[in-house]
Nucleic acid binder design. Structure first.
Lengths: 210, 210
DNA sequence: AGAAAATTGGGTATAAATACCTAATGATTG
DNA sequence: CAATCATTAGGTATTTATACCCAATTTTCT
């Protein structure tokens, strides 16, 4: 079997070390380097090509979504397996759109990691079962249904709702009419399918919108 | 310097491995064992005493809060440093009440880990700065202000609010008067200090209430 | 046993949110 | 250049939430 070159991109020292131990126990894997954010990853790739990048989503500096997009732009042969702590469908869709071919929870076992690297290296996809269950199945193979996108303004309004401001207060803070805030909020309801404000907050947190 | 015996209790393989590497690099620390949940930890302690337990909060089977309580009951000499992924103040207070003397984020560096183990072993406390900032300072030294407790009924109502039901709908689901639901909700506002329903959801998720 | 808290419910009033409608402007993009 | 979408904002009506007041019953804890 061929040797598969792997790079870890994760800002979290302890997790990187743990992952490197587990990777070293997989015979067909060679750990090429460790990066602590997206920029470092791109610098490493200039000199040392890799087959697979195990990519954390939440990183300071350049996060996993942006790093994946930029990486796939320059090095389309290098595949990305996303790593995440929780089942956040919002991030899931964004990472898939950015080009990730696999998606793993960080609580994964060695066997699952091994299977994922092998699958993605040989052109397939690999997803932790949590994602297969929570995501709509057709999203995984086709990967063309866009995740819901909320605009910048909507996100601003959303954050202020979460902080407990009324529509009137939000309007004052953003120098808008209360009716405009009503409008943004109504659009948020449409896009998310939420019934009311508490439900909207719940949905947004679950899906990584805020 | 004395050798400090440490046990890791975490359900997450990769994190355990990473932590063990970092611990092995600290000269005065001896890693005694690794446990993947609270029950395993208690079994290990029967045979092998430890000075410090690095305790994850979210574990299947017996979680970190319960494990800390039971452990401190039988082995009051063994100190607990809690490990968590996020800054969840609700868990923070519960762990402190259970007897934890330190609180670290999992994204910690080796130096911080070293300092935390040393501090707690010598009778002090150690908290990641994120907790010092987010928690009320007087909670840390005195540790006697209870975390907010919400009743069962209040939790039921809270969950239904999060799902997007109106007070009237919640009343029907729970076979109560709408006014009763209003009352529970008002008490939730009092206890949490939330300004309104969206804010209440935000607070509850942040603090592990739901 | 007695105190405290939880659970239940009512009245009244105001504030806020939500559901419909419409529409102008500006930016982006095919 | 035309189409689309984001952003802005108004009108009107209804529903809902929240803020005060109060109090009875049950459960829990000391």
């Amino acid at each position: 079997m061929e040797i598969i070159g792997v790079i870890i991109a994760d800002d979290h020292l302890i997790f990187r070390k743990g992952l490197s131990i587990v990777l070293n126990e997989i015979p067909f894997v060679k750990l090429i380097a460790e990066a602590s954010d997206g920029n470092e990853l791109l610098n490493i790739l200039k000199k040392r090509p890799a087959d697979i990048v195990l990519m954390d989503i939440n990183m300071p500096g350049m996060d996993g979504i942006e790093a994946t997009k930029k990486m796939k732009d320059k090095y389309p042969e290098t595949e990305v397996i996303a790593l995440t702590m929780h089942e956040e469908i919002g991030y899931f869709n964004k990472m898939i759109e950015a080009g990730a071919k696999g998606f793993l929870l960080k609580k994964i076992t060695k066997d699952q990691l091994e299977a994922a690297i092998k699958a993605v290296f040989y052109g397939e996809t690999f997803f932790s079962e949590e994602f297969v269950l929570s995501a709509k199945p057709n999203k995984i193979p086709t990967q063309n249904k866009p995740s819901i996108e909320i605009s910048e303004r909507e996100k601003e309004v959303l954050k202020l709702i979460a902080k407990g401001y009324s529509n009137q207060e939000i309007a004052e803070k953003l120098f808008l009419s209360k009716r405009t805030v009503d409008g943004h909020k109504a659009r948020l309801f449409e896009k998310t399918g939420a019934k009311n404000a508490p439900n909207l907050i719940m949905y947004s947190l679950k899906n990584g919108l805020i």
